[in-house]
Structure formats: structure tokens, C-alpha cells
Simulated assay, not measured.
Amino acid sequence: MIYSMTGYGKSVLQLPTKKVTIELKSLNSKNLDLNARMPSIYREKELSIRKVLADKLVRGKIDFSIYVEATAEDTSSQINAPVVKQYMAQLKDVVYGNDIDLLKMAVRFPDAISTVREEIDETEWQTIEVEMNKAVNDLINHRLNEGKVLEQDFNERTVAIEKLLEQVIAMDPERIEGVRERLLKGVEELREKYDENRFEQELVYYIEKFDITEEKVRLKNHLDYFTESMNSKDSNGKKLGFISQEMGREINTIGSKSNYAPMQQLVVQMKDELEKIKEQLLNVL
């Protein structure tokens, strides 16, 4: 089973005086890249939030946000009455106006409004943590669903590569015979006598340099290992990436050794399928 690194999770909590919205977005990244946005009152909880997200989400570019919307009368700002009165008294000596006009001017001055620093209500925070976990699980489920789509695509492409490999295997005797005939024809065109036994020895040596038996076996093993790793309990995009690199090496070696146009065409098709697998692996957790 594999998980995509792309996902989205959201949870909304309605408290007596506010609505709290928790939102998570995830994109692919080589490592964990976490960006957290939240009101200042919750900043002291940021380290614990980061630990939870790192443990559960492992890897990816994660945007975590907490939005708070007041839904009832709940303010931490208060009018500093003594200061405002002093401002109004001083303004009376400078400008003409009634008390309402003077009040409008006074509240704009420094320290006219005082802000009381809010403290976290731990009971409230425990409720928010529950909703945060819901948002995280929502994102994980999204990742799982995206992973199923990727898994289906990988299965189709590995099957396509395996079928192309079967065609390479079936074509190989014909290729070797073609190499033998070309060499024999080349020697005969020299119109000189040659030692047939020596020619056969040289031919065997030459053909061995173009032998792709090991590459065919290793490529088949890599394809099987890729499928086995994809169906394992844990999602491991890096491991699948390493296996795909090994698959690429075997395919490239088959192409360089083949010296046979029809087989090279099959190799090109295998490379095309593998490149599409590699592109999608960038999104796998």
C-alpha cells in the first residue's frame, strides 16, 4: 500500500464564543517542510503541534493553519478610561468641541485602548487538539486515496514493461542469429580462407559481449521487487525510487548491448514507461 504526499484535511470546531477552523495542505517534498500559521495565543503550543504532525505525516511540504473567528462578544481590548479622560481634558485647552468630538480624538491617541494578553484555556485547547487530529486523519485518508490511484498507474506500467521484456526475451535468439549471419557474411566477403574453428571461437567470444541474459533476469527481479515493495504495509517512496533506478540501469544496458534495431525500439518503449513511473514516484510518501 502506498500513500501520496498530496493531500488536504480540514476540521471546524464551534466553541461558545468563537469558531476554530483547522486546515492542512500537503505537497511532495524530499523531507518534512512544515509551515505553521496560528493566532499568537496558540504559539506556545507550536512545538507540540509540529511533533504531532512530524510523527503522523512523516514527509512532505505541509501547510498547517488555525483560523479563529469570533462569534460572540469576546474581546481582549478595553478602553483605558483614566488616560482617555486626561486626553480629553488637555484637548479642551487646545480645540473647541463637545465631549463626543473630543472623545473621538482621544481614543486615537497612544494607550487609549489597552489590550489584555489572553491565556490559553487548557480545556478549550484539549478540544482543539481533538479537532486537529481529525484534520490530520482527514489528510491521511486523502493521501491514501491518492496513493491508490498512483498504485494502479504503477501496476499498469510495470506490467507494460514486463510484457515488453517478454518480447525482448522472445526476440533474443533471432538477434543472436542475426549477429552470427552478419559476421559470417562479412568474413566471406573478404574472399579469404579462414579457420572455421577459430572463427567459431571468436564468434562465441563476440556474442558473449552482447549477451543480455543477466540483464533480463535482473530486470524481471527488479519488477517483482517493485511490486512486492508497493504492496508492503508501509509506504516507502524513496525505496521504490531506488528500485526504479536499478530497473533503469538494466534497461539501458539491454539497449546498449542489443545492437539490433527491433529490440532497441522495445527498449525505448520500456524507458518511456519507466520515466512515467519515476515522475509519479516524486509524489509517493
Rank of each mutant, 00 (worst) to 15 (best):
Lys18Ser: 14
Lys19Ala: 12
Val20Ile: 13
Val20His: 01
Ile22Glu: 02
Ile22Tyr: 13
Ile22Lys: 02
Ile22Gln: 01
Glu23Gly: 06
Glu23Phe: 08
Leu24His: 04
Leu24Asp: 02
Lys25Met: 05
Lys25His: 12
Lys25Cys: 03
Ser26Trp: 05
Leu27Phe: 14
Leu27Val: 10
Leu27Gln: 06
Ser29Trp: 00
Ser29Arg: 03
Ser29Asn: 08
Lys30Ile: 01
Lys30Arg: 11
Asn31Glu: 02
Asn31Val: 08
Asn31Arg: 14
Leu32Pro: 04
Asp33Phe: 04
Asp33Ala: 02
Asn35Lys: 15
Asn35Arg: 12
Ala36Asp: 08
Arg37Tyr: 04
Arg37Asp: 01
Arg37His: 07
Met38His: 07
Met38Phe: 09
Met38Ile: 04
Pro39Asp: 08
Pro39Thr: 10
Pro39Glu: 15
Ser40Met: 04
Ser40Ala: 11
Ile41Phe: 00
Tyr42Asp: 08
Tyr42Val: 14
Tyr42Ile: 14
Tyr42Cys: 11
Arg43Asp: 06
Arg43Ser: 10
Lys45Glu: 13
Lys45Phe: 03
Leu47Glu: 15
Leu47Val: 09
Leu47Asp: 12
Leu47Met: 09
Leu47His: 09
Ser48Met: 13
Ile49Gly: 02
Ile49Lys: 03
Arg50Glu: 12
Arg50Gln: 13
Arg50Ile: 10
Lys51Thr: 15
Lys51Met: 13
Val52Ala: 12
Ala54Gly: 15
Asp55Met: 08
Lys56Ser: 09
Leu57Ser: 05
Val58Ile: 09
Val58Gln: 05
Val58His: 05
Arg59Glu: 05
Arg59Leu: 03
Gly60Glu: 00
Gly60Cys: 00
Lys61Ser: 14
Lys61His: 15
Lys61Gln: 12
Ile62Val: 12
Asp63Ala: 10
Asp63Val: 13
Asp63Arg: 02
Asp63Glu: 11
Phe64Met: 15
Phe64Ser: 03
Phe64Trp: 10
Ser65Phe: 15
Ser65Val: 10
Ser65Asp: 11
Tyr67Lys: 11
Tyr67His: 14
Val68Cys: 07
Thr71Asp: 00
Ala72Leu: 06
Ala72Arg: 06
Asp74His: 10
Thr75Leu: 11
Thr75Lys: 01
Thr75Cys: 09
Thr75Glu: 04
Ser76Trp: 00
Ser76His: 07
Ser76Lys: 01
Ser77Cys: 11
Gln78Ser: 13
Gln78Phe: 14
Ile79Leu: 12
Ile79Phe: 09
Ile79Glu: 03
Asn80Cys: 08
Pro82Lys: 15
Val84His: 02
Lys85Pro: 04
Lys85Tyr: 15
Gln86Ile: 15
Gln86His: 13
Gln86Val: 11
Gln86Phe: 09
Tyr87Glu: 01
Tyr87Phe: 13
Tyr87Leu: 07
Met88Trp: 07
Ala89Trp: 01
Gln90Ser: 11
Gln90Thr: 06
Gln90Ala: 07
Leu91Ile: 06
Lys92Met: 07
Asp93Pro: 02
Asp93Phe: 08
Asp93Cys: 05
Val94Gly: 03
Val94Asp: 06
Val94Ala: 14
Tyr96Ala: 10
Gly97Glu: 04
Asn98Asp: 09
Asn98His: 02
Asn98Phe: 00
Asp99Pro: 03
Ile100Ser: 13
Asp101His: 01
Asp101Leu: 08
Leu102Tyr: 05
